[in-house]
Computed example of a mutant assay.
Amino acid sequence: MEKIINENVLIQSLLQCTPDFMYFKDVNCRYVAVSNSYATQLNSTAFDMVDKTDFDFMPVELADKLFLEDKKVIQTGEALVDKLEKRKCPRGSDMWLSVTKVPWKNAAGEIVGIIGVCREMTERAEREKHILDMLSIATHDMRGPLISIGSMIKLLIRGAFGSIDESVKVTLLDISGRLGRLEKLMGEYLCKSSLMNVKTPDKEFLDLRQDIIDPILEEFLSEIEENNIRIDNRLGAIPGNKVIIQANAKWIRIVYRNLIRNAIKYAASGQIAFGFEDKGDHYQLNVYNSGPPVHPDKWTTIFEKFESSDSTGLGLAICRNLIQKHGGNMWYENTWDDHPNFIFTIPK
Rank of each mutant, 00 (worst) to 15 (best):
C319G: 06
T40P: 08
A249C: 14
I238F: 03
K199M: 10
S151A: 14
G162M: 07
K65C: 07
K83V: 12
L66R: 09
I245T: 04
D26I: 00
E218N: 11
Y332D: 02
G180W: 00
S308D: 08
D211Q: 08
V9D: 15
S309K: 06
D337L: 04
K184F: 03
W331P: 07
D174G: 10
G162E: 09
E128P: 02
I4S: 05
I224F: 03
V287R: 02
A63C: 12
A107L: 06
F220T: 11
K101P: 11
A237W: 01
F57S: 00
N248K: 03
K86T: 08
F344W: 09
D133I: 02
M134D: 14
T40Q: 15
T53Q: 12
D337P: 05
G180Y: 00
M196I: 04
A33V: 00
T300L: 12
S93C: 03
D133N: 14
E61R: 09
I254G: 04
F342T: 10
V73Q: 04
I5D: 11
A63W: 05
E226V: 03
L156V: 14
T335C: 06
N341F: 02
N258S: 12
F274C: 11
L155I: 02
V9K: 15
N227G: 03
R209D: 12
G240D: 11
N6P: 08
G328I: 06
T200F: 00
H295A: 08
D48F: 03
P293H: 01
D297C: 04
C17R: 15
E61L: 07
G162F: 05
L316V: 05
A33T: 08
I302F: 02
A79K: 14
K52A: 11
I114C: 11
I213E: 12
V9Y: 11
D174Q: 14
E225P: 04
I114A: 07
N43F: 09
A249S: 14
E69N: 11
